[in-house]
C-alpha cells in the first residue's frame, strides 16, 4: 500500500471496527430480549440521508396527531411552543404559535400570591397531561407513559421502531396469552404492550385534506417526533456538508504542502 494512503485507510478501518463494535452493544439488547423478532418495517423518510430535510407539511400534520391523540397521555417536556415557529420549527408564524400556546393553561401565582392558572406563552414548555410523574403513573399501574421529547433518539431502531410500534398492533397468534388491559404488538419486545392502539384510520381530520390513513398518521407523527428529538438536524447536516468540503480541500492542499516540504529528502 502506498504510504500516503495508509493513514486514511487506517483511520477509516479503525472507525468502522469501532462502529461495528458499538452497534452490537445496542443490538445485543434487542436480540437478547427478542429472539427472532420480525424486522422493523422499512419505509422511506424525508429526513433520511446526508441531505434529508423535514417535510414541513408532514411535521404540521404530525403535530396535529400529537396534540389530538398522543398528548392525552404523553408529555413532551423538553419542547417549548416557540420551537414550533419559524423555518427551523414547523413553519408556523409567531402569531400562530401564540394562539397554539394560549389554548393551554399553566400554573402561576396571582397578585395575592395564590396559585392560579394563566394561558401559556410561546416561551413555555409543552404543557404535560399530568401535573407530575406520580399522577402520570397513577392511571397506568404506576408506570408513567414515557416522555416523547427524545423518544426517537432513545430507542434502538429509532424512527423505524416507533413507526413499527404505531402500526404493529395485531390480533395475538393462537395460544398467545395477552393479559386484560394489555395489547399485542408485533414489534414491542415481548409483544405485550400497555398502550392501547393509539391510531386508526381517520382518528383525526387533517386540515390540509390529506387522507388520514393509519399509515399516513403514523408516518406523520414519527416525522414530527424525529424533528422533536433532533430539531437541529437540518442545520447539522448543512453545516456538515460545508465543513467536510472545506476539510477535503484543506486535506488536498496540505498533502501537496507536505510533499513539497519533503521533496528534497529521501524518506
Amino acid at each position: 500500500m502506498r504510504p500516503h494512503l495508509a493513514m486514511p485507510a487506517l483511520l477509516i478501518g479503525a472507525v468502522i471496527a469501532v462502529a461495528a463494535l458499538a452497534q452490537p452493544a445496542q443490538l445485543a439488547r434487542a436480540q437478547a430480549a427478542e429472539e427472532g423478532a420480525p424486522a422493523l418495517p422499512d419505509v422511506s423518510w424525508s429526513f433520511e440521508g446526508p441531505f434529508g430535510t423535514f417535510d414541513r407539511a408532514a411535521l404540521q400534520r404530525g403535530f396535529q396527531i400529537y396534540s389530538q391523540v398522543c398528548s392525552t397521555c404523553h408529555s413532551m417536556n423538553l419542547l417549548t411552543y416557540d420551537d414550533l415557529a419559524g423555518p427551523d420549527g414547523l413553519g408556523y408564524t409567531e402569531a400562530e404559535v401564540k394562539a397554539i400556546a394560549a389554548q393551554k393553561q399553566v400554573p402561576t401565582i396571582n397578585k395575592e400570591g395564590q396559585p392560579a392558572m394563566r394561558p401559556a406563552l410561546p416561551s413555555d414548555h409543552f404543557v404535560p397531561p399530568f401535573p407530575n410523574e406520580k399522577a402520570a403513573g397513577a392511571g397506568f399501574g404506576g408506570t408513567a407513559p414515557p416522555d416523547l421529547s427524545d423518544i426517537i433518539k432513545a430507542r434502538d431502531g429509532h424512527e423505524r421502531y416507533v413507526y413499527g410500534i404505531l402500526t404493529g398492533f395485531r390480533e395475538p397468534p393462537k395460544g398467545f396469552h395477552v393479559p386484560s388491559g394489555r395489547y399485542y404488538n408485533l414489534y414491542f419486545p415481548g409483544h405485550v404492550i400497555a398502550m392501547p392502539p393509539p391510531l386508526q384510520d381517520n382518528v383525526v381530520t387533517y386540515s390540509d385534506g390529506t387522507k388520514a390513513t393509519l399509515d399516513q398518521e403514523a408516518h406523520d407523527v414519527v416525522t414530527f417526533l424525529t424533528w422533536a428529538s433532533d430539531p437541529t438536524m437540518e442545520q447539522r447536516k448543512q453545516t456538515g456538508a460545508k465543513v467536510i468540503l472545506f476539510l477535503l480541500a484543506m486535506t488536498g492542499v496540505l498533502y501537496g504542502a507536505k510533499r513539497r516540504v519533503w521533496s528534497d529528502v529521501e524518506h
Binding site: 492542499v253 496540505l254 504542502a257
Partner: peptide, 8 residues
C-alpha cells in the same frame, strides 16, 4: 502550497 495550507 505551503502558504495556502497555512491559510486554510
Amino acid at each position: 502550497l505551503v502558504i495556502a495550507g497555512n491559510a486554510l
